[in-house]
Write a protein that binds this DNA or RNA. Structure first.
Lengths: 98, 98
DNA sequence: TAGAGTAGTTTATAATATAAACTAGTTTTA
DNA sequence: TAAAACTAGTTTATATTATAAACTACTCTA
């Protein structure tokens, strides 16, 4: 009856990050930190997890002498997000059949 | 930007339970166990958490000599579920206005 | 009356989330 | 120019959560 909710996405911070990356396509660490309100440490860890899952790509460079971490969503990430949303809908709008 | 997702509800099993109780109003332990596919131990723990949060009421009785645990959603539970769904929508359908 | 089954609960452990502490630099400012 | 403050992160320790395994306490059946 209830489909599994991808544990990688069923996390408030990771879901917020993916949600942002879906809409902006590319974002740097500080932007994500501000928009999500997360601490840097937590964000760092969750970005790594999203990367390990293959849901985002992370590029490290420098801008004005400071380190710059840029994140982009991947095809797998988009697919996973769409599947997650689809499954989640089962939980938040019940169909009464059976 | 992103509203907090009630941690009591942001759990696959607890969300499934609440989701069921919203639609059926009353359900026993075995019904919830079958519909969610959870193990009895996990379900027992999560029902206690929902009860402690005041989201459900649990009544224990006997039916045909066997223990019967009946769960019902509370007003607070309904309100929490509605708030959760409302907040969640921010995450799964992005509005581009800042 | 022993074995299997029902309906759970408790407890131990694995997984997750999070903040605090740390690294490695850069930019003031005194 | 040296110390203090700031940027942009990472690592690590801890608290929280989720979960399954083990257990309790019966009942039914052969």
């Amino acid at each position: 009856m209830f489909k599994e909710l991808d544990p990688i996405l069923h996390s408030q911070l990771r879901l917020a990050v993916i949600s942002l990356l879906i809409s902006v396509k590319e974002a740097d660490f500080t932007f994500l930190k501000e928009k999500t309100g997360a601490t840097a440490g937590n964000l760092s860890v969750q970005l790594q997890k999203l990367k390990e899952a293959g849901y985002i790509e992370i590029e490290k460079s420098f801008k004005d002498n400071f380190p710059l971490t840029t994140c982009k969503i991947s095809k797998d990430g988009i697919a996973a997000f769409e599947a997650y949303v689809k499954n989640l809908k089962q939980y938040i709008s019940i169909k009464k059949e059976n």
